[in-house]
Nucleic acid binder design. Structure first.
Length: 430
DNA sequence: TCTGGGGTCCTAGGACCC
DNA sequence: TCTGGGGTCCTAGGACCC
């Protein structure tokens, strides 16, 4: 009999900031996206003020000030490091840990004894993680991942669970399903929830009660799997997520946007370089490269422009220079010619995606290849090593430029408490 | 004025082949 | 006027996730 736990960090980014600002406990806190664009994390107090996920910062700024909400720019170095601490602790409680996202992981608890003891086990996990890292978490335990996710939401909502909700018996499952809105089920998004509402299906129990053939006829196999999981049949398998099948690096640009080709080219070169670096980090090569750039989708007063082009390379590569050259080449081909009469396109966001990813060990050679791949590999390894020691982009390709003119806006950035020696908190003893 | 970033899987439809 | 049938592969777009 299968049994899974999911451990979910509560309002993770906000909790990370609070670890180093304990005075913010009990107060509303929000964390902003890149460029301080919109809200991507809210503490419970902030949620109660009516602040929504994705709210544009400039629209809620007055409210934030009025309610004295603590505001932070996103600090991914800090969150990544705190996530590592949490995951490392969780791994001690299971033979098999699946890290699902920066703030969430599944623990396989199958064949680890009577499920009745698991309630206590889950509480221990929650308690230990909180005590050791300062991050509060919610644990859900059930025979399927979808039910476990449901459990973690109950554990988060009701303090009485002491951090862990166990949904093991059919009776408990039925009760939980009845109390749970179908749109909150893992795997049911806005679109499907709307269709279900049309059939008067509003709770998870309503959905679970339907016939499998009906679900199959109306939705895709993914939704059928969700339905099975709600009925206690475990069928969602997470594959290894450490080896990405596509890698994307993209940014929005602060302010008006970019109209100058040279600056956009430099940005794209840097995105391509980051992609190549992530690719080598997971010891892979890619054969597909996509570049895109577009104007703001929110502005109707200026001309909109979308650039997107992909290409398949003849030989899989992990070379920074080659990926930059490919991406920048496609950008140049598609960049709109400036007409003196009209205003230039203001590009607000751009990015590079690499795909068709394979292991670096088995690269299919091309008969007509003109590059000395062995020599190139040695060069890349040397560059990665220098950048690893001295900070990334110490050595870079000329197209990447020397100054970051499209720099991020992050006015409310906290320190690198856990990864930079100069930022480590100093304790004062009185 | 100011609206994130990075992924996965599924499906429909077109291209192409015999 | 009538214009096969079946299969595979690829891709774009949609839906979902955090």
């Amino acid at each position: 009999m299968s049994l899974f736990a999911v451990a979910d960090c509560n309002n993770f980014y906000c909790s990370c900031e609070r670890v180093f600002h304990p005075e913010l406990n009990g107060r509303p806190v929000v964390v902003l996206s890149n460029n301080d664009g919109c809200l991507i994390a809210r503490s419970e107090e902030a949620k109660k003020l009516g602040l929504k996920m994705g709210d544009p910062f400039f629209q809620v700024r007055d409210l934030l000030e009025r309610e004295r909400v603590a505001v932070f720019s996103s600090n991914y170095t800090l969150y990544g490091s705190m996530s590592g601490r949490v995951m490392s602790l969780l791994s001690q409680y299971t033979p098999s840990l699946d890290v699902y996202s920066i703030d969430e992981a599944f623990l396989d608890l199958s064949n680890m004894g009577d499920s009745q003891h698991m309630k206590r086990y889950g509480e221990q996990i929650a308690h230990r993680v909180h005590k050791a890292t300062g991050i509060p978490i919610s644990v859900g335990i059930a025979p399927t991942k979808t039910l476990a996710k449901m459990g973690s939401k109950f554990a988060k909502k009701y303090k009485g669970y002491h951090g862990c909700c166990l949904i093991d018996t059919p009776e408990r499952r039925q009760k939980a399903l009845e109390l749970f809105p179908v749109e909150d089920v893992w795997g049911i998004g806005r679109r499907i929830a709307r269709q279900l509402a049309y059939y008067n299906i509003t709770t998870a129990a309503d959905f679970a009660r339907q016939k499998e053939s009906w679900v199959r006829s109306k939705f895709s196999v993914t939704t059928v799997r969700t339905w099975k999981e709600l009925n206690g049949e475990s069928c969602i398998v997470l594959d290894d997520m450490s080896q990405k099948k596509s890698i994307c690096t993209s940014r929005s640009f602060a302010g008006q946007g970019i109209s100058d080709f040279g600056i956009l080219e430099e940005a794209v070169a840097n995105f391509a370089s980051r992609c190549a670096s992530k690719l080598r980090h997971q010891r892979s090569c890619c054969q597909g490269v996509t570049v895109f750039a577009h104007t703001s989708p929110f502005r109707e007063d200026v001309p909109s422009h979308f650039i997107q082009q992909s290409v398949q390379l003849s030989v899989p590569t992990q070379d920074t220079a080659e990926i930059i050259k490919t991406a920048v080449g496609m950008l140049r081909e598609n960049f709109p010619a400036q007409e003196s009469t009209s205003a230039p396109a203001l590009f607000k966001k751009a990015g590079v995606i690499i795909w068709n990813i394979t292991s670096a060990r088995v690269v299919q050679q091309d008969l007509f290849d003109t590059i000395d791949r062995t020599k190139q590999k040695a060069l890349l390894e040397a560059i990665d090593e220098i950048n690893r020691r001295n900070g990334h982009d110490t050595v870079r390709i000329a197209t990447q430029g020397t100054n970051v003119r499209f720099g991020l806006q992050n006015a409310y950035l906290s320190h690198q408490y856990t990864t930079n020696i100069d930022d480590v908190i100093v304790a004062k003893i009185k």
